[in-house]
Design a protein around this nucleic acid. Sequence first.
DNA 1: ACAAAAGTGTTCCATATACACCCATGT
DNA 2: ACATGGGTGTATATGGAACACTTTTGT
Lengths: 203, 203
Amino acid sequence: MRVTVDIVLFTIRERRLHLLLIRRLAEPFAGCFALPGGFVLPDESVDAAAARELREEAGVESVYLEQLYTFGEPGRDPRGRIITVAYYAMVPQTQSLQAGTDAADAAWFPVDALPPLAFDHLAIVQYAHTRIRNKLGYTNVGFELLPAKFTLSELQVVHEAILGEPLDKRNFRRRVQLQGIVKPTKEFQATGRKPAQLFRFKD
Amino acid sequence: MRVTVDIVLFTIRERRLHLLLIRRLAEPFAGCFALPGGFVLPDESVDAAAARELREEAGVESVYLEQLYTFGEPGRDPRGRIITVAYYAMVPQTQSLQAGTDAADAAWFPVDALPPLAFDHLAIVQYAHTRIRNKLGYTNVGFELLPAKFTLSELQVVHEAILGEPLDKRNFRRRVQLQGIVKPTKEFQATGRKPAQLFRFKD
DNA sequence: ACAAAAGTGTTCCATATACACCCATGT
DNA sequence: ACATGGGTGTATATGGAACACTTTTGT
């Protein structure tokens, strides 16, 4: 019985939630897009395998990574009995990506406009999207999609992209500030028109 | 690489949350208590393996079963590289248990008074307990611990056992009734003093 | 009559929602 | 001057928390 990891790597581009897909070169599903992932090595923890595959296939290092669910139906991979442990991860818009990618063809797709996916990867993606939508309500998820310092408008864009719906600016700002999950810096971002105050996460 | 399942089987006894443990006969950890579980067979889904182990080791059939987390540290089992997919399950107090147990010695323990556990099973138990405590707030978890018809006091005992703290009777009853997750039957339970109305779950 | 569990309302506080205008800056 | 995104307050609705007594039955 073999064990793989598959990672749903999220980011925000042009105010929409995107994820990284890799075009498969080999059968099965050659030419089809799939999640980055691969086999767990004999002396490596499952978490470490996910981090390594992210490094090798997506060229990203030390990102937020969380286990999602294990998919273990016997027929899910035509090559034989392969169980996969799914993860999701997040990178800020700024991080340069796909550098170091050893897969032929990696690309970002909006979560609401995905190409056909190999294996049961569509189910994994939907599971991941549901998870982060739910976690947004009661955790700090979403911060990993931003650089260390960010404006409240940028944070709002992240939340709107994950939820897929617009939020009220005043209510949003009051909530994040009252919950005490961000703290203001003394810096301002002078890009655009009126400079916006920069914040960082607590803890 | 081998894959096992381990199941945290909860029930309520004497108003406290308990779980089923099995005394190991073989090394490693011979004589120690462990969660019911075992290897996933080659043509069996991981979910099916968990259901089968519950049947074989705990003698329970068709119970609520949900995947929890996959534990995959290389050193977690001294016999070699074994990854385990952890599940939790729930049975009502009424269900007769341990009938059909093929393990030598199965016993219920209160979650707050556990014996030393084999492998990383203590971490699995704590993860399961945290999960059901959180799910209590936003789902119908806890209903699986009761028979089809139950009184609101019995439901409150279940919630108190999982949360580990007493709840206000009036607030509890109002909440479950307003949320529309239970519906009253016309029957009453005549055990004890004043007969209590029986409810059942919606859906 | 008494013991035991069932059943029942109100007040208060915190949090979510709906909603519109002025401000600072770059062009 | 104007276009752009930054920033701010109030009123209302909703959900949670605290809190004590009466009712029904069996013994």
